[in-house]
Simulated scan of single mutants.
Amino acid sequence: MANVSKSLNAGVHNATGIEFQKHCVLFLLLDNYEKLKERKYFICLEHHDDFLFCFQNGNGELTSIDAYQAKKSSGKWGVSDELCDILRKLVEVGVALKEDSIQKNECYSHALHFVTNDAITLRAGSKPKVVTTTINESNNWVEFVKLDKKIRDCLEEKVKKKLKSNITALNEVGNIKFCFIDFGKTRQGHIERLIGKFILTFSNKVKDPNAAILTLLELFREIETAFNQGYKAKLLDKKKRVESDVINEALNIITSQQMAFETWRNHRKDFAKSLGLNLIQQREFELHFNNSFDLFKDYHQAEHIKILSFVRNNSQLLESCTDEVMLVEEMFKKFKSENNSQLDEVELKAAVFAACIELINPHE
């Protein structure tokens, strides 16, 4: 039986630790984006473990979980008391995940990761028969079961001593994986690494990757400060989740805004002439179309929802329009002829423009 521990909420008070955890979450999200973007999942922070990636099937059943203990380090790791404490926590998490009452698929499985920003050197045996495995930038992902038997036996024995009466948790050691992330030692170093990873993932689709990274990190703010009620972690607790739909929507908004900005910048004079925008109105127009992407997903913004739906329902105009300027002009005329709007003229034009950019550039 997994023990209830007040340490479940300890990380909520530890801003530095959570910051590193969030950076690791985002790095792994970007690093695996091509695989993740078509999958249904949710991410938990400070819930059973430092963070979890929980994968679901179409029925909402859990198919697998990747659990992570993320520790920032200023020095290299060895077969130390601290490392074995981390491994003990991981195997106890494995038991807790099995016991969690959330519905699981019959083929459910989980992996238990220790992730850090410095090299891990695992060494066992005595001279001249010492065996060593190092997890670092050139060998950044190692499974426990693939370690040399001497190292496995050494770690297993040390973890067994720490488990005391909870010896059944030792069955989880086979699910452990060691992971190295090439982060620097400072927050700025982490952000720079994340920006680089974001650029590699999305190429030139986003003008300001630094702002994009900060936007994505903000998604975790609410769940990082939510307590596990009664010091009991439950995967059914949606207050501790960020769903894949929310992540995808945030990425869609980021890339759509960039596309809109680039389209406006490249054809500003043509759009201004076509939509009858004077120089003062052009500045207002730019502000409104940037805001429109957020308003499109706010169910309280009936006018913007109506405009987005109208544009999507009139996608046949893509067949008769030869460029973006013509499409926005024709879509705006059609909307005006068929609808009334509470938005002022410039805001309405900006919302139609933003909706048309989404229509032209559907998200992958």
Rank of each mutant, 00 (worst) to 15 (best):
L8W: 13
E82Y: 03
S7I: 08
L62H: 04
R39W: 04
K158M: 09
L62K: 03
T263A: 10
D270P: 00
N291H: 10
K150D: 11
I305S: 14
H113W: 14
T134Q: 12
T322V: 09
D245M: 00
D344I: 02
K164M: 09
V159E: 09
Y299K: 11
V142I: 13
N290D: 08
P362Y: 09
F220H: 07
K146Y: 15
L28K: 15
A350Y: 05
E172T: 08
N59S: 10
N59M: 11
Y33Q: 02
V12T: 13
R312I: 05
N14M: 01
K164G: 01
K239F: 04
K160L: 05
K239N: 15
F289M: 07
N105D: 15
V79C: 12
K35T: 13
I151Q: 05
F310G: 02
C154K: 14
L348T: 09
F289D: 12
I199S: 01
L83K: 02
K197L: 11
F335V: 06
F332K: 00
N340K: 13
E19S: 13
Y108C: 04
V246Y: 04
F289A: 05
S126F: 10
V311Q: 04
L90S: 11
F335M: 04
E143M: 10
A15G: 01
K232W: 04
I360Q: 12
V91T: 12
K273T: 14
N166F: 11
N140I: 00
E19P: 00
A212V: 08
I18H: 09
V131C: 02
Q103R: 11
T255D: 08
N278F: 12
L214Q: 14
G230M: 05
L26W: 03
T132C: 07
A260Q: 08
K234T: 10
L235I: 10
S109I: 06
I254G: 05
F296S: 01
I254W: 13
K22T: 10
D237T: 10
L62W: 02
S74D: 13
Q301M: 13
C179S: 07
F180R: 00
K104L: 03
N139Q: 14
F335P: 03
A15T: 12
K72Y: 13
K150S: 10
E157V: 08
T255R: 14
L87G: 06
L36P: 03
W77E: 05
A350F: 03
E303W: 13
E192M: 01
G189I: 08
S7K: 12
Y231K: 04
S5D: 11
F180H: 14
E286A: 09
D148W: 12
I247A: 05
H113L: 06
D323R: 01
D270V: 06
V159N: 02
K162M: 09
F227C: 00
I280Q: 13
S80D: 14
I86K: 10
K160D: 09
V206M: 03
K160S: 15
V4E: 06
N57P: 06
D85N: 12
E284A: 06
D344P: 00
T263E: 15
K306M: 07
R268M: 11
E61S: 05
E319A: 10
R123F: 01
Y231V: 07
L348I: 03
W77R: 02
K297N: 09
N290M: 15
T263Y: 07
H113F: 15
H110M: 05
E218W: 11
K185L: 14
N361Q: 12
F183I: 06
